[in-house]
Amino acid sequence: MAEINKNGQIIPIDPRTALLLLLLVTIAVFSQHSFYVEIATLLVIFGLFLYGGLAESGLKFVLQFGFLLLLQYAIFPVAPKLFTDTFSILAAYARKVLPCAMMGAFLVKRIPMRYIVLAMRKWRFPQKLIIPLSVTIRYFPAIREEMGYIRDAMKLRRISGAARIEAYIVPLMFSAANTAEELGAAAVTRGIENPAPKTSVIELRLCPRDYVLIGCGIVLAAAAFHLR
């Protein structure tokens, strides 16, 4: 079963497997023309969710997919024209990217960022790319949080129109610039500029389950090209 690390986090699969699977699912989703491949992709990822102990969130994605199918095949043909016009492209697009979004959600929920950094290091990504990329991914939740605070502050002061946009952007930039200063100082203190190769307490090892998953991904991507 899934491994549990010292911090009590469940790490169901090797981060490299998860990243490869994301890539393969993306290839499969965007080159498939067959409904069966679409369903198979979804089921493989759903299986992965069950294995990683994320049954509830996996079920939510499957239900969303079902809802989109219902919308496209049962509701759009009979709905008013305006409704269909507005939502048809969104529904088609959402259905298309749903497996990728699901795989992405799995990564976010089950693979901690340090494992992803480690995977990139194993693949010999340059350090100059790993650092900003990991900062970018870690900063997304901070942006969301910041936006919430700004919204609360704005409620107190009745700001409207174009001033609202300014009132969002300016504090966001201030906090970003300050975070960059502080994080930069902290990272330099902790030796980010040390040219010696980085070491890690975590050891990555590919297990049979990783090979099985990568195999599934390759089969799906190959099937996407050949089945019509």
């Binding site: 492209i89 900062v135 960059a180 200063e181 994080l183 930069g184 100082a185 980010i192």
Partner: peptide
């Protein structure tokens, strides 16, 4: 590029991406 520069790039790339993504979503309408 030093450590601090890389972190600055990372943070502003996140903001750029979010703004970009918002319009990417809106463009579906």
């Amino acid at each position: 590029l030093k450590g601090k520069d890389l972190i600055t790039i990372g943070i502003f790339s996140a903001i750029y991406f979010v703004f970009n993504f918002i319009f990417m979503l809106v463009s579906g309408f």
